[in-house]
Design a protein around this nucleic acid. Sequence first.
DNA 1: GCGAAGATTGGCT
DNA 2: GCCAATCTTCGCC
Length: 219
Amino acid sequence: MSIYQPLSPPYYTQPTLTVAQALLGKIVVRRLGNTTLAGKIVETEGYIASIDAACHAYTGQTPRNRSMFAGAGTVYVYVSYGMHMMLNIVTEPAGIAAAVLIRALEPVEGIETMRRHRFPPLTLGKNTPSLTAIANGPGNLTKAFGIDRRSDGVSLPSPDFFIADAEPVSGITVTTRVGITKGIELPWRYLITGNRFVSKGKPSGSMVLKVGADAAASG
DNA sequence: GCGAAGATTGGCT
DNA sequence: GCCAATCTTCGCC
């Protein structure tokens, strides 16, 4: 059950958009004390500084985006809107800024702990929050997994934080990215076709394309 | 040193 | 569907 095989560092040296698609279906694993949290990646976005105005490093290196320049397999965590942590996996060689944003996870293991992180007892209402609500967005998944800026700059795999291998997915939906005002036309958002655990974000641009085995069925 | 914007979320109209 | 919350970062004065 809890046997997870970490992806090796060279995995992240593939081209950014290749990594963004290849990470779909893989398992984010987090060990907190005796608890293991695991979730399947169901939604990602690519960000490439050299050709992408939406990328934090588009105008160069700053203290915040430093980790994006640290080379493939580095974790880049930053604060969005003053309250949400965003989890990225850096791609490309050191000195070249690019990363894959993990936007949504399907809970696999440690679900009750995730639920407590997301909905502490004081805010727990009458109903048990649904499974799909636990990590269906970039800010939500970091909260569920207890990921904060202490993970920024960490190299994968690390003992308490890594991404595990898994079977490739059968169908991928490609769309423009969510929540950005620049580079809205770039089709660099990837989702597992038909998966219920994806975020509710609406693509900034208009492109939607399905590829793979599920394309005909869900198109 | 100051001000505006931001890879979001959840609650209310 | 609209909008406030909340605060760090960065660009410019």
